[in-house]
Computed example of a mutant assay.
Amino acid sequence: MTDFIARDETATLISADKVEGTAVFNHDGEKLGSVEDVMLDKRQGNVAFAVMSFGGFLGMGEKHHPLPWDTLDYDEDRDGYVVNLSKEKLEDAPTIERNETNRLYDRSYGEKVYGYYGVQPYWI
């Protein structure tokens, strides 16, 4: 049997499991965290959020920030995503607990997240 997907990345597509763990940097080159999960809107076919882990040590004190997908730009030179955020702005950003991804299904919470980053929600 032949593998359906021969590679997990092409010039324009990447599998979600390869996105997970990818570093996230700000424009100053500081590593802010890494993509922990990708949340897909299965009805509309959009990537809704990238959940980024930030801070902590060995999982202790780590924060999880849902980022609207449109806030991330892939940078081949860094082999990671770049966001227009400072560490200070990220400190005040909306967070979720590791087991709270169900909050992302709440449109009012989603609007709060998108509003914080100044991005129009994809569903509007």
Rank of each mutant, 00 (worst) to 15 (best):
H64S: 05
L40K: 12
K89Y: 07
T71M: 08
F54A: 08
E88W: 02
L13P: 01
V82C: 14
G61D: 00
V82R: 05
Y117C: 05
V113S: 05
K87E: 07
R78S: 05
D17W: 15
D77A: 13
R78M: 14
N102R: 11
E36P: 02
G80S: 02
D28V: 14
E91H: 15
E88P: 00
R43I: 09
K89M: 05
D79R: 15
E20A: 11
Y117Q: 03
Y122M: 05
K89R: 13
D37S: 15
A50G: 01
F25S: 08
A48W: 01
V35A: 05
H27F: 10
G45I: 10
V19M: 10
S15Y: 14
Y116Q: 08
E36F: 12
Y74M: 03
D17C: 09
G110K: 06
V19N: 00
F57H: 00
D37L: 12
M39P: 00
D8V: 12
Y81S: 01
P68M: 08
K31H: 02
E100N: 14
T2L: 15
Y116E: 04
Q44N: 14
G118I: 03
A48K: 06
D70G: 09
V19G: 02
A16R: 14
Y116F: 15
M1A: 04
R7N: 13
K112A: 11
S108N: 13
R7Q: 14
S15W: 11
L72I: 00
Y109V: 08
V47S: 00
V35S: 05
P68G: 04
M60Y: 11
H27G: 00
N46A: 08
G59F: 10
E97V: 06
E9P: 03
E88A: 14
D41F: 04
G110N: 03
N26H: 06
D73R: 11
Y105Q: 15
E111K: 13
H64P: 09
D8F: 15
E30I: 11
R103F: 13
D73K: 10
M60L: 14
K87R: 13
T95R: 07
L104R: 10
T12Y: 15
L13V: 12
R107A: 04
A93R: 01
D106P: 10
E30T: 06
K112C: 05
G56I: 04
W69I: 14
V47P: 02
A23G: 01
E20L: 12
P66A: 05
Y109C: 04
G110W: 09
V51F: 00
Y116T: 02
S108Y: 06
A23T: 02
V19P: 03
L85Q: 04
V83D: 00
K31S: 07
G61I: 10
S34R: 10
E76K: 15
P66V: 06
L58D: 07
L32P: 03
G29I: 10
M1I: 09
V38S: 00
G21V: 10
L40E: 04
G55S: 04
T12I: 13
L58H: 05
R103G: 13
V38P: 02
G29M: 11
E88V: 11
T2D: 11
A16H: 08
S108F: 02
E88L: 07
L58N: 12
P66M: 04
G118F: 06
Q44W: 08
P66G: 08
S86N: 09
